[in-house]
Every structure is written in structure tokens, then in C-alpha cells.
Simulated scan of single mutants.
Amino acid sequence: MASEQTIQEIEETLGQVPGFLELPAEPASDHSWAIFRDLVLGETELSPREKALVGVTAAAVMNCPYCTYFHTEEARLADVTEDELEETVTVASNTQYFSTLLHGNEYDHDEFVTETDEIFEYIREQEAAAGDD
């Protein structure tokens, strides 16, 4: 169980100590809260909106109903629209689809990197040319 100080901080932050934050065994309990607090709730390089969309994406790919519910509500709190949530999950499924194809077919990683670099170089050139117009 988390230290009394951590329990008090969780209650002040979330209004309660949810059961999932009681799951980590010692000595991970205080650290687990700190990671959650600092990454999910804290001020970081990503905005709350961006973090919520990352969470929705990860949850969808992992097929985790707990994470999906939590991060979907987090996203709604950050003013993500239902259309944006649908698109986020669709992009995640597209990534998972192609990952399955690449891994299942044992596609050569070096070839993939080379092709990807060429694609993005081409796109950058096209964007630069469009900006010159």
C-alpha cells in the first residue's frame, strides 16, 4: 500500500483513491502514483489533449477496456470531439494492421527504413516546392 502522504495526495488530486492505484505492491506503489501524476496529470512537453490521444491510441491497440475507458474520458475532458476519437482509433488500427503485415511477412527492416526515408524526403521536397510558389 502507498504511504500515507501519497494516499493523501491522491485523494486531494482525484477526490478518492481508486482501486487501481492500490494494486501495485511495495515498493512500487508510491512510484506508480508519481509516474501517473507526473506523466498523465503533470505539465510535460505534450498537452493534456495530446496525452489523451496517445492514451486512446495505446489503449485501442492493446485492446484494454480499462485503458480505453479511462483515456477516452480523459480525451473528452480535454475537448477531443467524438469524430477525433473515431479518427484516432482508426489511425491506431491502421498502424496495427500494417505492423501485422510487416511482421507476419518478415519484411526486411533495412529496406523498410530506406523506403520510408525516401518517401519522407520526397514529401519534404514537394512541400518545399509548394511553399516556393
Rank of each mutant, 00 (worst) to 15 (best):
residue 74 E to S: 15
residue 41 L to G: 07
residue 94 N to P: 02
residue 67 C to L: 08
residue 17 V to C: 03
residue 6 T to S: 09
residue 34 A to R: 12
residue 51 K to Y: 04
residue 6 T to V: 11
residue 83 D to T: 08
residue 80 V to W: 01
residue 34 A to C: 05
residue 84 E to V: 00
residue 55 G to H: 03
residue 12 E to P: 02
residue 84 E to C: 01
residue 55 G to L: 01
residue 54 V to R: 04
residue 11 E to V: 11
residue 45 E to V: 11
residue 106 E to Y: 07
residue 81 T to V: 02
residue 37 R to I: 07
residue 54 V to A: 05
residue 9 E to V: 12
residue 46 L to P: 02
residue 41 L to H: 03
residue 104 G to Y: 07
residue 14 L to S: 01
residue 12 E to V: 07
residue 106 E to G: 12
residue 28 A to Y: 15
residue 73 E to R: 10
residue 62 M to D: 13
residue 69 Y to I: 04
residue 21 L to T: 01
residue 18 P to K: 02
residue 22 E to H: 02
residue 94 N to K: 09
residue 7 I to M: 13
residue 47 S to H: 01
residue 33 W to A: 00
residue 45 E to L: 15
residue 104 G to P: 04
residue 20 F to H: 02
residue 96 Q to V: 12
residue 90 T to H: 12
residue 70 F to A: 04
residue 87 E to F: 00
residue 34 A to G: 03
residue 22 E to Y: 00
residue 62 M to T: 13
residue 84 E to W: 00
residue 102 L to Y: 13
residue 57 T to N: 04
residue 96 Q to F: 05
residue 19 G to C: 05
residue 25 A to K: 11
residue 57 T to F: 08
residue 11 E to P: 06
residue 16 Q to T: 12
residue 55 G to F: 01
residue 45 E to Y: 10
residue 63 N to Y: 07
